[in-house]
Computed example of a mutant assay.
Amino acid sequence: MTKELMTIRPDMNLRNSKHIHILVVDDEEIIRNMLQQAIKNAGYDCSNAGNARDALKVLEEKNVDVVINDIEMPGLNGIELTKIVKEKYDSDVIVMTGFAKDLKHEEVIERGARDFMRKPFSVKEMLIRLKHVLNERAIFSEWKRAEEDLKHSIMKLERVLGETVNALVSALEKRDPYTAGHQQRVTKLACAISKEMGLSDEQIGGIRIAGLLHDIGKISIPIDILNK
């Protein structure tokens, strides 16, 4: 493991690795110090803790991206810590153990961990698994950011659409003062009926626009014909 500590290099494919923080939790000081050094050599910030209680203190103080924790620890064990981490913090968890021979990989994943390593494992294996989790985390973050951008774009388009519809209705009423307010009355009635029918807000929004525009064809009719 010592030679591997010297040969592992940072993954240049992960952006902003210096802002990524890893927390190693293991009651064996030699193991957690060795893993911490390997993770730092790979280009990431890294803290360590000897038990779940100290780990939770670190999680309160720092934005931790991934927690790598042992299962067998005094006090709260690794599974219990994993549950708390997933409930309270925006961190992913990789579980490691050398004792739980009957504990299956899928059982650990079901309890909230993103990956599972059996001791003894190599530093290279640990870093490969860590980078895999970080890549998945980055992809999910990009997806969430794109989703938020899309929501903002849709809201902006809806606002522009509303302003355009109101402008068209205003222009139509100026051309035909006799029916002024007709579009709003029809729209209000249609929306009230839609609400009573239990339609969704999105459907009611579409009906509102349709109600305001139902006479829009009159905007192209000559005024002398409208006034007859």
Results as ranks from 00 to 15, higher is better:
Q203M: 12
L189E: 04
D201V: 06
I193F: 06
Y178A: 12
D176E: 09
D201H: 07
K195T: 07
S200Y: 05
K188S: 08
R175F: 05
M197G: 00
I207D: 00
P177S: 10
A190N: 01
A190K: 05
K174H: 13
T179Y: 05
C191R: 10
T179N: 13
Q184F: 07
Q183N: 15
G198D: 04
Q183A: 15
A192L: 08
A190C: 09
A192Q: 12
I193Q: 09
H182D: 03
A192G: 04
K174F: 07
L199V: 02
P177Q: 09
K174V: 11
T187F: 02
Y178N: 13
A180S: 15
E196C: 06
R175D: 06
K195E: 12
T187W: 01
G206N: 15
T187E: 01
G206E: 05
I209R: 10
T187P: 00
A190S: 15
C191S: 13
E196P: 02
G206A: 07
T187M: 11
I193D: 03
G206Q: 07
S194C: 13
T179A: 08
P177Y: 07
A192N: 10
Q184W: 06
R208D: 02
T187C: 13
K174L: 13
Q203V: 14
E202G: 02
T187G: 00
D201P: 03
P177M: 12
C191P: 01
M197D: 05
K195R: 12
A180W: 09
R185C: 05
A190D: 05
I207M: 11
Q183P: 03
Q183M: 15
Q203F: 05
R175C: 11
A180K: 15
A180R: 15
G206S: 10
L189V: 07
R175A: 10
A192P: 01
R175W: 08
E196T: 12
K188M: 08
Q203H: 11
T187S: 07
E196F: 07
D201M: 09
K195N: 10
A190T: 11
I193T: 09
K195P: 02
Q184M: 11
Y178P: 00
H182M: 08
R185G: 01
L199N: 00
L189F: 11
I204A: 04
E173I: 08
V186T: 10
H182C: 06
G198H: 04
L199Y: 05
I209V: 15
E202A: 14
L189Q: 13
I204K: 02
L199S: 02
H182V: 06
E196R: 13
Y178L: 14
T179G: 02
K174E: 15
L199W: 00
G205E: 01
I209T: 08
R175N: 12
P177E: 08
K188R: 13
E173P: 09
V186M: 11
Q203S: 14
E196H: 08
H182S: 06
Q203P: 00
D176F: 15
K195W: 03
Q184Y: 12
G198T: 04
R175M: 13
I207C: 07
D176N: 14
S200G: 00
R208F: 09
T179D: 05
K188F: 03
I207E: 02
